[in-house]
Design a protein around this nucleic acid. Sequence first.
RNA 1: GGGCGGUUAGCUCAGUUGGCAGAGCGUGUCUUUGACGUAGACAAGGCCACAAGUUCAAAUCUUGUACCGCCCACCA
Length: 758
Amino acid sequence: MDAKLLKPYNPKETENKIYKLWEESGFFNPDNRPEWAKNKETNKNYNKIFSIILPPPNATGVLHLGHILEHAIQDSIIRYNRMRGKQTLWLPGTDHAAIATDSKVTKMLEKEGLKKKDMGREKFLERVNEFVEGSRKTIVSQLRKIGASLDWSRQAFTLDEKRNFAVKTAFKKMYDDGLIYRGSRIVNWDPKGQTVISDDEIVYEERKAKLYTFKYSKNFPILISTTRPETKVGDTAVAVHPNDKRYKNYIGNSYVVKDFCGVKLNIKIIADETVEKDFGTGALGVTPAHSITDWEIADRHNLNRPQVINEYAKMTVNDERLKEKKTTEAREIIVEWLRNKKLLEKEEETNQNVATAERTGGIIEPLPKLQWFVDVNKKISDRNNKSFKELMLEPVQNGKIKILPDHFVKVYYNWIENLRDWCISRQIWYGHRIPVWYHEPICIPKIGKERQISKCLEMIVSVEKPICEHCDAKYIQDPDTLDTWFSSGLWTFSTLGWPDINAPDLKKFHPTNIINPGYEILFFWVARMILMSQYLIKEIPFKMVYLHGMLRDTKGQKFSKSLDNGVDPINIIEEYGADALRMSMIVGIGPGADAKFDIQKVKAYSKFANKIWNVARFVLDNTKDFTFPKTPSYDTEDKKSDEELKKLITEITKEMEEYKFYIVAEKLYHYFWHTFADIIIERAKKKILTNKNADSAKILLYTHLTTLLKILHPFMPFVTEEIWQIINSRRKVVIPTETSGLLMIEKWPFDDVQGKLC
RNA sequence: GGGCGGUUAGCUCAGUUGGCAGAGCGUGUCUUUGACGUAGACAAGGCCACAAGUUCAAAUCUUGUACCGCCCACCA
């Protein structure tokens, strides 16, 4: 008897050793396959490929329990498919998470008393890289701790050189196809972070606000309501609903307001369907430059768009009372002015949803800015005149891409329908620099050549830094960086060798089989991967989107730093073992379902690991001197048990293919404990003791153990592998040698069972 | 305002085509030279949120109600 087996199962002493064994075997890499899987005769899945690209964790910090949930699912899928004999790739990587990382490092530096601007771009980026490198190391070691069978030889980073080349290539192609444009449009400006952010990076906070009702001047015929009087110096119209009888006669009129707190206004009365008749006075003061809906109204009615607020949320109008004042101060000044002029009709309390930046908390100031956009509506000629919107919809509609749970399909459609052009430029330093180059303002004549200034190109979109052919001036790169999701969108194929369309990995492993993110990034990421993949390589990025839910604490709250309710998964693994933690994340948690994390569940499965261990001890102890007959035969009840296990295998294999891991894991737990241990072992004890049908019992014990180890392995890889290794060390002596080596690359028993049953 | 999800044992949650209500933890009783005390055996505990409907049969399907939660829109 192996001395180890005499003690209770100790994951701490086992897991690192086992992971090393796996890693050194090279079998995480699909290029290395076990002998049986290389053989068409023994492997039905010989030609099949199975690939998952890991949703890259943000390099801003360490992994939390939510990640473990994600990784436990993926590793189980990967291990299962590897055992089925497929060429199985699970590719690891991390995400540079531009804004998140940038703002995190900025805060860290502020604590040291350092300012980003004083440091300069280069120095700042050095610090960011240093920080990210540290984070990445932690993440990688955490992934190893939970037993993730990732192919480390293919590790990628969203901001490494290869991915940067992919990003630049994608940008250029999109620009050349007219799908990326530079335009002055209203954007969500974050004055605190000094950058543009996308619609998806906004969070709304409900606050109390005052709603003011007033006229622009004594003669003005219509009262309007606003919570932001300071923006009214930028008004160019008053919009009313076309059916609103109160205002019908005014539609089309224009009024000059000579002095609105020192500013001259030109107000046209227009009719627009978007105006709510019942809100306020039913008339909306239109401020095109500082409200997104007003900007769109201005589009429809051809209005001027004077800007009255700048990037620092300060007023830019010429009136000395207002100039350079913060918007909040300007608001008071204008309200006071309205009061004095007796133009203010009403002040009332109202609830307002204030747009704030997710990462910095700054209040969003909508501003017109020159930014880069992806046109989501433009027809793409070499994609059958389909737009990005259509390219994103199509594969989900025709079922090429399945989403689990399927009610997210509707949510996905709904998001695409309401999608506006995607603003991809960010005014932060950390990220992929936009591959656009501007000619220096002054041309420098080439020595010995004639000046041909008129031929100098002002702007070039190029993967490499361009050189001016006509003068000696330099090109200067656009200072902006790209939205982090631009590079994430390329992830399934930039990791496989794209833009080299002949890259062997790309040909072999794309489209990937399944992607497994949380539902909260369905739009951010999943949609953008579909967009990029459909457009750049005319292929879906994955066949299945298995969305997982959120993990919350026992009170049902999100895990967050501000609540300080975070749990370090590594501590849990140290105490209970990775297998236990993994099982607790899988059993009973269906796709898309939020779950409360309960340490009791982990404890329960650590007991289960020990149970498996003890069962192994019993079985090995009772079969140690037994010589297996060439053709095993069972008595009636053992034969029934053998069939029952085969039935279980058929069942769970089907369920694995249907992504019902949460049911499979539970079934295995239940069968192992309450059928194998409680019934079969108890029965075997009697048979062995009385020596009646003892051989049948021993064969059943051994086959049950080895088979159950195999099918438990995807869920509890460490304890099952450790036992397998102990069995291996004895196998040559007594037990038939149908297997050897690692459990990780053993054959999943399904095909054998099918063969025998049929 | 629009959309989605949830409500099952004291707690956390499963329950796949409708067919005697399940697990873990917790609780109670019993069992220790025996694979396992990080244990085993047994047990208690549920009008499956509420109401109506379809059906031989409903936790499951339909409709409505209540409460909890999430997402999207952003009302000026």
